[in-house]
Design a protein around this nucleic acid. Structure first.
Lengths: 207, 207
DNA sequence: CAAATATACTGAACGGTGTTCAGATTTACC
DNA sequence: GGTAAATCTGAACACCGTTCAGTATATTTG
């Protein structure tokens, strides 16, 4: 069955090359420029060919999203060496925010855009959006550690983790959606950082 | 000059009727269905006619956004009777979240979509996004009152207000962008509320 | 080896989008 | 009534996601 295996491998390789081209377009040109036609041009295929490897654009975006979550997980790696619960949580928040600013397009794909979530819905899995859940679980675990250590009062780690996520997520999306325009350009650069400092204070204070 | 006046009035009336049709489409059918052609159909005009009243779609969305901010301001009205700073702030947060769930399409127009902000940029005004700034100022004033009353420690009211805004905004957008999918359907309904309760605790604790 | 089959790919089309512009129509003025 | 100004539109342009009949290539079978 050597031939069948090679074919399978070739197929996943071509699938991956589509994803690579799409990701490249995403990062290089922004998500508005990521059209099926542009992806097709980049890999010198016909647009119709992409539909042999992905059901539709949402499915492609979903695959791309999963790949991007791999990157974020990588960023989170080092954080789990930190012992102090509040500091570990604030480090996670910091990494989240840094990732959002460093890769705004990927961040939007992961946490803002509708397309990938439509694919998640369409799949109708029992455990939808596993990659998102896995990322969130890291926050929950860090929070639970803090509660167990008596640093945080609130009993429900999931609720507290959601609040922490939402806090940083809110700062990131306010900035990335240009809603920080209400601040002058100089202020805009620093106020997010100041807000994060205040957030860290709140965290260390015990939540 | 009675005629010139009437013409001017007619013009603003037609402009308004375009906005009304667009808003109706927005609320009734969702923002994906708000196309220039659909708006034109609703008011029985040609799509080209809309461009006599709005420079482009972004400019139309911007006008619609301003209108929506009027609604939010209305929601905020009652809040400013509350004396206790922490309670006033948490009431603002509650209204913000309630508005987001009650009018998700308008919320996205105001705080998520890119189009209206592109128009803001294109206008190049000295005080960009005045309606957003006005809404935020209400939060800042409430926060400043809290600082003055010694309830909140942090000196910079703007930074603290941004953090409060981002907290609630994060919860709203996580839910509305379907990222709360990581929770079971029943949990999804209640966990946002629980997170808000925890947030209120933090606020009352003094931030 | 040749024919049949399975695999891979594509051109062209469908209906949708925002936008522009020459031309038609309606209105106001002298 | 005739001219000028204001108002509106049909048709087109270049894009979008998606589908499908048809072509070309590679593999399997007789």
């Amino acid at each position: 069955m050597g031939i069948a295996e090679r074919k399978e491998r070739d197929k996943t390789e071509r699938r991956q090359s589509i994803l690579d081209a799409a990701q490249h377009l995403f990062i290089e040109q922004g998500f508005e420029k990521v059209s099926m036609r542009n992806i097709a041009d980049a890999i010198e295929y016909s647009p119709a060919t992409i539909y042999l490897y992905f059901k539709d654009k949402n499915e492609l975006l979903f695959a791309l999203q999963n790949q991007a979550f791999g990157r974020l997980a990588q960023e989170f790696e080092s954080v789990f060496e930190i012992e102090h619960p509040a500091e570990r949580l604030s480090a996670i928040g910091h990494k989240y925010l840094t990732f959002a600013f460093a890769h705004p397009e990927l961040f939007q794909l992961m946490f803002v855009m509708n397309g990938p979530m439509e694919a998640v819905k369409a799949r109708g899995e029992a455990q939808p959006w596993a990659s998102g859940r896995a990322a969130f679980d890291r926050v929950v675990r860090a929070m639970q550690a803090g509660i167990d250590a008596g640093v945080f009062r609130h009993a429900d780690a999931e609720v507290a983790a959601l609040l922490v996520w939402a806090q940083v997520h809110g700062l990131a999306t306010i900035y990335l959606s240009n809603r920080a325009m209400i601040f002058s350009e100089e202020r805009r650069q620093t106020i997010i950082e100041e807000a994060m400092n205040l957030f860290n204070q709140v965290l260390h204070h015990g939540l």
